[in-house]
Each structure stands twice: as C-alpha cells, then as structure tokens.
Design a binder for these strands. Structure first.
Lengths: 344, 344
DNA sequence: TTGAAAGCGCTAACAG
DNA sequence: CTGTTAGCGCTTTCAA
C-alpha cells in the first residue's frame, strides 16, 4: 500500500483567496497585514475566504519580499551538554513567543565546522544569531563573524565592541571555589579547563590566580590544565594530575561537561571524595547533586542566560539595530556540598 | 559608538554576476546548478565572477522556485533530556551532511504546543520532519499530523501505516528488567512510566506483564504508575509508592528522564540502594554510571536511532516519496550493575 | 479605499 | 549552447 506522504495537494495562494472573496490580491495582502485602509465589508469577505479555504500565507514568499525570515540561528558547542540544552530551551521559549523559529547547529568546538555553520546561517538569511564561538582569537572566525552582517548575541565570549553578549562571572566563581579550598587548607589545587582562546577558560584561570594572590601564595603552574572543554579531557587530565608528584589535593572541573570525567578518573584511581581528593564542579547537575557525597559546584543560571540572550537578540532585531552593543553579566555562586574537605 | 550589525550592504544577486561575466542570468543559473550544457569559456567566466563577487545564491529565492527548502523540522518532547539531545545531535549530523538545516522545536509533551509547532513547521515548508508526538490517540494531533502532508519519521511512536518510524524495543527491555528482578526474588516490582497514549509507556507495561505472565505470577496493579514522563513524576510516584503498604521492593524508572527523581525520592526516604530498594533506570547516563552503586539500566543506542531516523527521512525526501512506510526497530538491553539485590 | 502592476532572486521552459 | 521570458507567492508602490 502506498502512503500519501509528500504534499501533492496544490497550495492555496493569495490568488485563490482573492478570487473567492471577489477582490484583488492587494486587498487580501492588506487584510493579512492588518492594513487599516480596508473597508469593513471587504475585510469581512476576505477574512471569511481565508477561513474557509484554510489559507496560510507562504512564509517563504513573505520572507523574500519583506527581507526578513523570522528565523534565528543558535550555534552552540554541543547539544549533548545538558546545561547547554537548558540554555537553548530557554532561548527558544522566548524566541518562539516572539514569533521566531530556531535553526540549530552544533559546532563541536571545531573552527572549520563553525565557519561552515556561519556560512549556512548567513545564506539562509537568519534574522539574527545566538552563538558561542570556538575561538575568540582565530582570525578566520573573527572575519566570518563580522562578515555575518546580522544581529548577534555572543554567549560567554568577550567581544568588547562588536556584538551583544551574555557573560557569566566565571572569574569570581572560580575565585570563590579556590578560596574555599585554600580555607580548607589545600595548597595544591588543580584547575582543568578549556583552551585559553575562549573567555570562560581565561576568566577561570584569572579567578584562580586572584584567589592565590589575595592570600599571597604562589600556585604551582603544573596544576593548571587548559586545553579542552571536552568531556574526555576531564578524565585524561585528572588521571595525569593524580599520577604526578606531588599530586593535587583538590581538583576543580572548570567546564560544564567535565565533572563526569573527573569523577570517573577519581573512581579509576580508587580515590575517595573528599578524603583523598576534594572536587568542585562547574554548573549544577543531577549528577553533582546525587553523588555521594554531593559535589560542591560553581553554579549559575543558564536558563536565565538563555532567556536574556534571546531577549537581547529580539530587541536588537526589532528595535535597536544600531544601538551600542550591550553586555549582560550573570553571577556565579559557590554551592558548598560535601565533596571538599581538609587535605590529609 | 554605533556598530555595524544589520547587513545594510546590498546583496549581490545573480544579475550582478551575469553582467560582470557578460552573460545572461540563465547561464549563471545553469552554472550554479551544474547544468552540463554550458560552454567551457562561459562557465569559467561565470565561475570567476562568482568568486570575485563572493556571490552566494539566495536560498530563499531558490527554495521558492524549487519548492523545497532543504530544512527539516525536529520536534521532540524536551531538549532538556540529555539523551534526546544525543538523538538530535546524531540526526543533525546526518542531515547536515546531506545538506539540510534543522529547525528545532520542543513540545514539552503538551498537545497544544505540538499542534502549534506542526502548524509552524508546515507553514515554513519544511521538506520533512522527525518527531515524537505527545499523544498517539489525540484526534486533533492525529489530524494535524496527517494534514502535514510532508515526509515524516516518527520517533518511538506507533503508527502502523502512515509514516516511517524508528522504534525502540521497550517491551523486551522492560521484560528483561522485570525478569531480572523476579529472578532475584522480588515480587513487588513497581513500574513508573508515562501516559499510555504513547508507545513507550504501552510497550513497557506490556513487557512488565509479559515477564510476570511467563512466571505465572499475577502482579499487583497498584505498582504500575503511568501518567507522565516528566522528571518530577519519578520523584512523586516513588514517594507515593514507598508510602503505601505493602511498599514495592524494586522500582523501575520507565522513562529516560525519570531516574534522578526516583533516586532523589529514595534518598529523601533514607532508603539504601539496593539493600532497601532495588532500582532500574531507562537509558544509560553519567548519573546511572557514577552513582554508588551504579544503576542497572535498560539501555539502547539513541544516537544510532537518531542517525537512522535522519537517514530514513532523507531517503524518503529525495528518493522514495511514495514507498511504503518503513519501521526500523532497535533493541533494548539490560545492563546489570549494582542497584539490584534480593529483597529482604 | 481599492485595483493594477512592478518586482524580490531565482529556475526552467522555450526559442533560437 | 545560450539568451529571453514567464512565473514562484507575496508586498508595496502608483494610480484611480
């Protein structure tokens, strides 16, 4: 048996409506767009025709004429990071409400992939884009972002003068985390985070140094590992760190996808938390909450960030195309749970 | 200082290319579309003009003329469920590779929302859609799905004759889970899952009964709770179940987002796993793996499912518009870890 | 207030 | 092989 998938039914166009209502297309279009200058009688006839034919304007044709698609692109590192999904969801809710559809793409943190995505989004004429970038420094990406020529909101990337941005206070968050550990007596505190071509990594390293400096202590640079936000990296670096001598007494997972890897490595080395090793994660999660002991984390509200990012974008698209770039900051707090104790 | 966001630069069109190359638009179009019948000299001139002007065809206009957008919609219950994100990512990889962009929408399991999403996707002229539906029975949704008139692949929804589908063997998975528990000596096994208007819930309940029936035992219907796949539901029902008398000795979280809730409730009731309560989850996760003890789960490969779903869709869009619906099944395995023991 | 007509940028059918 | 032309469905002048 054959099925009927594939829309063979001819579309109903504005012409059908016009002829059914006995008016010109122009009039139908005016009714569609809420143009005041349409007589009541005609308006009613047109509206009835629309209803009876179940007519829906062709968004493509509208976009083409109007020069706006009412679609925005969302480019993130990876959909697989739960908390980023939360960010996307929150943004999407706002965008949907404002009448925008969301085109989604994951860059996997790879510059080539990001380059390609930007090109696709631009050719598909997004009205705007919310994005993180794989690197803030890469000249190709820089050029591509500027060439976008469309409103953009950067997620957690520093770009002082060009785009709107939402920024999380990683520096302060990590500073508090390190201070917490220093207070407990730790002196060998490791920080695992991403490449220093991205703001979150840079800020975390800064926060780390802030805390040490405030205590007048000099940290051992071997305890700072900046290379990737990937989930595996947490595992690899924790293993490496715990193998070196002296090994750290505390590890901070400075990336939202890193905690599982760090925990896995701790388990692989049969380390008890917090007796043998104190651990602090970045961003809260079911995992952090449900572990025994529950994991102390640097936490922020990614859904709120998503909401604000979307609001900034919609605002710029619809009202403030030429306003100066706005940067909205979000605090990061230390949620103290059971995964940190004094070193032995 | 004002910024330059907003693309004021006039677009380069096929006309510019044509005049720069000294040919007609038709020729440029032919070069663009790889039409063989273009002389080498002109082709080269056109290609150079395209390169020099950095011309990119307007996707909107192309879509309009060709009647295809090369965009597919992906509608899922919730982006916030990590494993669904994995599904989306895998699907997206395939789609991207095939030249399709992905428009994403989350229904939150609410029929009204789903209805609206379908309408949006249809008006935006997706070439196809991959979706789960909030309810297989709801007549409105049924109608809307049929009215879609576009290729669709259903995710884990039973729709015998109308659409392509990818289906997970929840029935067998749960059957194995229940058998495992029965083997351990459990007789009061609870199953928490979603509304029985969706296939995963129906199949899980069936699998549950399969296992009991095979042993010639009659289960207590009070131990089956079918109402929602929501994350909270796991918590609420576990609490309720553990408060009733007799309480179950084992609980199966029959939904991919439910395990955290069940674990949380177990903790709230100070129940030790598996001593006081055996637990089995659905779908593997970091959480399941990292708990102490690690949680036994019914597991399947959602990324593979996503990949196949996308392949089915692309195949149907591009080659097999009128082929009979295909249903691809995926096995669900029981991964035995430490969260189940004999009841006391 | 309304209708007619000119495109938006592109593809494809039709001539030559 | 190449140019010309007629639209795709809609919005928006420009006249009436």
């Amino acid at each position: 048996m054959k099925n009927r998938q594939g829309g063979s039914t001819a579309r109903i166009t504005i012409k059908h409506v016009a002829s059914k209502a006995g008016v010109s297309l122009g009039t139908v279009s005016r009714v569609l767009n809420g143009n005041k200058s349409v007589g009541d009688e005609l308006r009613i006839r047109v509206e009835r025709a629309i209803r009876e034919l179940e007519y829906h304007p062709d968004v493509l044709a509208q976009s083409m004429r109007r020069g706006a698609t009412r679609v925005v692109g969302v480019v993130i590192r990876s959909l697989m990071v739960p908390v980023l999904a939360g960010f996307v969801k929150a943004a999407q809710d706002v965008l949907h409400e404002a009448g925008y559809a969301v085109m989604l793409a994951g860059s996997e943190g790879r510059p080539e992939r990001e380059l390609e995505i930007l090109s696709v989004l631009s050719r598909r004429r997004m009205d705007g884009v919310i994005m993180t970038t794989a690197s803030e420094a890469d000249p190709m990406l820089l050029r591509a972002r500027q060439a976008l020529q469309m409103p953009a909101v950067l997620l957690d990337r520093h770009n002082p003068t060009e785009f709107d941005a939402v920024l999380v206070a990683h520096r302060e968050g990590i500073r508090r985390a390190v201070e917490h550990l220093l207070d407990l007596g730790h002196r060998r505190i490791a920080l695992i985070t991403g490449e220093e071509t991205t703001r979150p990594a840079v800020e975390r390293v800064r926060g780390y140094h802030d805390a040490y400096r405030a205590r007048g202590i000099t940290p051992d640079p071997r305890f700072i590992r900046t290379q990737s936000f990937g989930a595996d990296f947490g595992f690899v670096e924790t293993s490496s760190l715990m193998g070196q001598n002296p090994a750290p007494t505390a590890i901070i997972a400075g990336g939202i996808a890193m905690l599982p890897g760090v925990l896995r490595a701790a388990r692989a080395h049969s380390l008890r938390v917090p007796d043998d090793l104190s651990i602090i994660g970045s961003c809260d999660s079911d995992l952090a909450q449900m572990m025994t002991p529950p994991i102390t984390v640097v936490q922020w509200d990614y859904e709120k960030v998503g909401k604000v990012a979307a609001e900034l974008l919609v605002g710029r698209i619809e009202r403030e195309r030429d306003a100066a770039p706005r940067h909205v900051r979000f605090p990061a707090e230390l949620v103290i749970r059971g995964s940190c104790a004094a070193p032995r």
